[in-house]
Design a protein around this nucleic acid. Sequence first.
DNA 1: TCAGGCGATTTAGACGATTCAACTGGGGTC
DNA 2: GACCCCAGTTGAATCGTCTAAATCGCCTGA
Lengths: 338, 338
Amino acid sequence: MATPSIKEVAQRAGVSVGTVSNFLNRPGIVAPETRQRVQDSIKALGFVRNEAARHLRAGRSRTVGLVVLDVTNPFFTDLAEGAEALAYEHDTVVMLCNSKTDPVREGHHLDQLEQQRVMGILITPFDSTDPRLTALVDRGTPVVLVDRTADRGLCSVSVDDQLGGRLAGKHLIESGHRRIAFIGGPFTMQQVADRKAGITAIVEETGDVDLQHYEVDVMGVVEGRAIGEQLAALPARSRPTAAFLANDLLALGFLQGMAVAGLRVPRDMAIVGYDDIDFARAAAVPLSSVRQPAELLGRSAMELLQEEVESAERHRHRQVIFQPDLIVRDSSDFKRRR
Amino acid sequence: MATPSIKEVAQRAGVSVGTVSNFLNRPGIVAPETRQRVQDSIKALGFVRNEAARHLRAGRSRTVGLVVLDVTNPFFTDLAEGAEALAYEHDTVVMLCNSKTDPVREGHHLDQLEQQRVMGILITPFDSTDPRLTALVDRGTPVVLVDRTADRGLCSVSVDDQLGGRLAGKHLIESGHRRIAFIGGPFTMQQVADRKAGITAIVEETGDVDLQHYEVDVMGVVEGRAIGEQLAALPARSRPTAAFLANDLLALGFLQGMAVAGLRVPRDMAIVGYDDIDFARAAAVPLSSVRQPAELLGRSAMELLQEEVESAERHRHRQVIFQPDLIVRDSSDFKRRR
DNA sequence: TCAGGCGATTTAGACGATTCAACTGGGGTC
DNA sequence: GACCCCAGTTGAATCGTCTAAATCGCCTGA
């Protein structure tokens, strides 16, 4: 026995389909007695609304696509959390898609979302200049970039990565470090480049500080550890006394590398990471890290999208930029460790 | 200008909508010349299929819901990977939903999925005896339990957790350990209880082995570390020489606890975790762990679902159980470390 | 020349919910 | 008694796609 439709509900309640629809959407205009009958009928039949039919009629669905680079990364799940919270208030569903930093997967997800006529798409794109994104908008699906800054005709929410790099650099310099390593990669990634630019800027402003760059292909624990062991092998006199790593996974690996080599953190090597994931706080030596307001980012992206959907024609694209915070913990703090 | 429909495509190509539909679904029966014209028209207008309309017509959507307890956990993303791979082959979309171990969120997701008339739902439920699940099936949405064993009328795929516990225990006993700690919790969780039962069984079969239980509320890094420090504080004579932890996060924390207390792993304390997440391999001392075939689990779940969808009436529910593997690394291996 | 057949295409409903103009009937007003 | 009002309800049209049945040419073989 198939799921009953509004028609069967109407029949059983002895009313027309229009009334049932009214009950569902504008219960106020239905007479109390009728309301009760429809209610009972729905319950008795186990009626469940058919979203597909609603969408078809409405022209647009009540779903928003959220495409992220890596669902495993807590930064993105926090972001999703923020987006979902706001979506929930507006009776909207978020469809989470994991592109895994793969443009092909990303494209596939975008195709699917467009076919579903989603209300809009929030995306941390592999390449924010991808013409496909603006094409989507032209064909009527609003797109908001997340954790990326849009230049052209798109809305975006992002975090000031240059400032993040600056904060980390300032903190290390003020703690007395004069030989600092920046570790991240690939340097072609916007985020990484900006963080590097930030610390480079403050280093140059200060003068008399030696900043070294180490590039990695992937920002994972394994790579961080390798670089850590590499640095640890340098003679103490020329070795950096502090390292700023472009994400926390790198930093965690780096920390392990120090432990393996017998260097003490922060005494022999101060460490600052980026993202402030939960693991950072729970590490053997709690990790200092630059925190991004992930949840707020998600929430704001959803806000921009809803604004765009509602105001349609007269909508002006906006680029919102948030500021990161430096969270200082033991890994870069002499005083705490005594 | 709204997205064009099949109708406009037909008009521009000088054919009927039926032909366009045929082109889309059975291109073989359309004359090559006509095919070309339709093709061109689609391209010129930027036509994109409307899934909502297809669903409405077909009665069911081509989407499968996958509800997991924690998207941040690599185990579940690997699982999703397996499910998606098979889905892709069948031209199906997977909608990933994160319940965050919250029954309310889980319920909300289930409601949404049912309203969308998804093809079916794969779920690692908060409570596998939830009547809501069988209600879904009764109303026509197939459900397959993942990483849980169904007792009643449901399909399920799971991993033999008792065997996992057994493997870990056997390995430690054969390595010569006679005082072993089992750490996990809450013990009421099926998974945890099974792993505990597994190691308990082999311990009893062997005899002359002292197995101690430590229960935690949450299986996270912080808790593992706390227990680690607690054990490290015991006098060496009565302290367990090996620990089996019910997940890798606990084990990682435990490992940190050892480091902080100055105990060497595996010499002073051998460690075996569960799940074999990436972090386990990359830890300061690479972690031995019981691996679950996550991707296979996801793939099989999807297989069962598709089987159920296709054979409909004459489908018999099945419970598939996979076997875990023990991956031995340095944390429990004397020989490797010399 | 015509029946039959075949490939290609068209036509005509569904599918389920929503919406809106049209209707109903009871009550009040003049 | 004629009129209007209004809350409540109805019925039909609509959204875009798919499919089964109907139709159209055109060719072949008798």
